[in-house]
Every structure is written in structure tokens, then in C-alpha cells.
């Protein structure tokens, strides 16, 4: 077959295809509604076993756990609906990890951003050491911008979940400030630490000479929730302080400890830590 012949065949094929297009009837389908949002159904209420021996008892116990039980099967494989829901929850979790907190959200909450030594999300994920420290220029900038030697310094960080920050911070932060108002403590300038690990609060404490430091940080997302926030509180923090010196308030999200409640509690903790000059195991002692 030579080129001319090939071109002829192609032209004919194109002509035929175009003709077909013209001849096709107009789309008459009616789009009435949409496919169910499978991320919305309650795992605790979902039940797929056909003709179970005892559904009532199953549901009574299932109501207490997010474990994916009563899911049935297709041969040995899961049902499509069940497997797609796992994928949907995994998607929410991965998006929480791999997407950044939106800048507008931080602006709205008056949080200026300072980045740790991590230059990218990938560095952040593979180098926990770099997520705890700032380079000299950033450290100097933090010192220049923020109130020096505060009694309580609050910082926010993406950690492993940007969703946790965006779902909770605008409720947690005001609650902490309200709680601290009555104490008369000198409260520092809050800011956002991009690519931060828990230990970033130790660098912050050192740079600003803070007494109590709190980092509100997005936790590693599971499939059940991708927006869980934790507060790690430390008295007299410095890089290398033992982990046992941290007091942790975890599981802050709407289905766990609600953010407003958590904020009030964190404020109370800060006052206690300030008064007792201790945190973590030392605070309990």
C-alpha cells in the first residue's frame, strides 16, 4: 500500500465517521438527579447481608463501631458499593495529606506562614528531621514579626492533614483565646508552620523564648476520619526535649472532641502548665 492509497482510505474513513455523527439522533436522555453520594452513608447503618439470621442484633452491635461489618460478598470478593466506599475514604485521606491548606483560609484566620526546612511535600514526608526546624532567615523573620517571650505561644501546622486544619482551626483558635483572656497571660502572635512536625514547636519555643508552646497539627488520616487535629503542648520547649514532656489533646474533630470544647480545654491546660511550670508526665506528677 502506497501513501496515496493510505491517505484515500483515511479520508474515506473520516468522511464516513463525520457522516455518522451528523446522522446520529439528538441526545434525548433526561438527566433526572444524580448518582448517590457514597461517601455520605453511615458505615454504622450500612448492612448488606441478604436474609441474615438476625439483623436486629447485628445492627445493635454494629451501631457502636465504624468497622466495616455486615458487608457480604460477591463470590469471595467484596460488593462493589463497599469497595468503592473504601476507595472514597482513602481518597479523602490522601487528599488531606497531599493538598496544601488554602492560603485564603490562613489569611481569613490572620495566620502568616513560615516554612520549615522542607522544600516540598515529598521532602516533608520522607524527612521528619527537617520538619522540626527552620533555616536562619526564617527564624530571624519569626523573631522580627512576633511578640517576644510570650507566656503562651500558639502555632498551627498542616502536619499530615490539611483537611484537619481547615475543618477545625477557625473554631479552635477563638475558643483558646477566649479561654486565655481571663488569665491575664501574655499571648504570643499566632502563625502557620508549613510542612511542620510536632517538634517544630520546640524550635518556635526557642526562637521566641516562649514559656508554654502549643502546636495544633493535622494528624495522619485514617479511613474513618481525615480531619482529626491534635494539640501538643509543652512548657519550656527546646529542640531535643523528651517526648514525655508533651501534653497531648488528640482526636479533635466534629465526631471526636468538638473543636470549641477542645479549645476551651487547651486554654485551661496552658494556664495549669504556666502555673506549675511543667508539662507532660511532669504535669501529672
Amino acid at each position: 500500500m502506497n501513501d496515496t492509497e493510505l491517505m484515500r482510505i483515511i479520508r474515506e474513513a473520516i468522511a464516513q465517521a463525520t457522516q455518522g455523527e451528523k446522522a446520529a439522533p439528538e441526545c434525548k436522555c433526561v438527566c433526572d438527579g444524580e448518582v448517590e453520594d457514597i461517601s455520605a452513608y453511615s458505615l454504622r447503618e450500612e448492612f448488606n447481608i441478604p436474609n441474615p439470621y438476625n439483623k436486629e442484633e447485628y445492627m445493635r452491635i454494629k451501631a457502636k463501631t465504624d468497622a466495616r461489618l455486615g458487608v457480604w460478598r460477591a463470590g469471595p470478593r467484596p460488593l462493589t458499593r463497599t469497595t468503592l466506599r473504601v476507595r472514597a475514604d482513602n481518597a479523602a485521606a490522601m487528599d488531606a495529606v497531599f493538598n496544601d491548606v488554602h492560603e485564603e483560609y490562613l489569611e481569613r484566620n490572620n495566620l502568616k506562614t513560615y516554612q520549615t526546612k522542607c522544600d516540598s511535600k515529598e521532602t516533608y514526608l520522607t524527612r521528619p528531621d527537617l520538619g522540626r526546624v527552620f533555616d536562619d532567615a526564617t527564624a530571624a523573620q519569626i523573631k522580627a514579626d512576633c511578640i517576644a517571650e510570650p507566656d503562651v505561644q500558639i502555632v498551627v501546622s498542616d502536619g499530615l492533614s490539611s483537611s484537619a486544619v481547615e475543618a477545625n482551626i477557625d473554631a479552635v483558635l477563638p475558643a483558646i483565646y477566649n479561654g486565655l483572656k481571663a488569665t491575664g497571660l501574655k499571648v504570643g502572635t499566632p502563625f502557620f508552620v508549613k510542612y511542620g512536625r510536632v517538634g517544630a514547636e520546640d524550635s518556635v519555643a526557642q526562637i521566641l523564648g516562649a514559656k508554654v508552646t502549643v502546636i495544633l497539627l493535622g494528624e495522619r488520616p485514617g479511613l474513618a476520619t481525615s480531619s482529626s487535629l491534635s494539640a501538643y503542648c509543652v512548657y519550656g520547649g527546646y529542640p531535643g526535649i523528651p517526648e514525655a514532656n508533651r501534653t497531648v489533646v488528640s482526636n479533635i474533630h466534629k465526631a471526636g472532641t468538638p473543636p470549641v470544647e477542645a479549645g476551651a480545654y487547651i486554654a485551661e491546660l496552658c494556664k495549669q502548665m504556666y502555673d506549675k511550670k511543667a508539662s507532660g508526665l511532669d504535669l501529672k506528677a
Binding site: V71, T82, G222
Partner: peptide, 11 residues
């Protein structure tokens, strides 16, 4: 259950 450990948060 469905590979989702609700306590340890891994698959």
C-alpha cells in the same frame, strides 16, 4: 474487616 483497621488507622 474490608482491610480497614479502625483502631490503628491503616489498611
Amino acid at each position: 474487616p474490608m482491610g480497614d483497621d479502625v483502631m490503628l488507622a491503616y489498611q
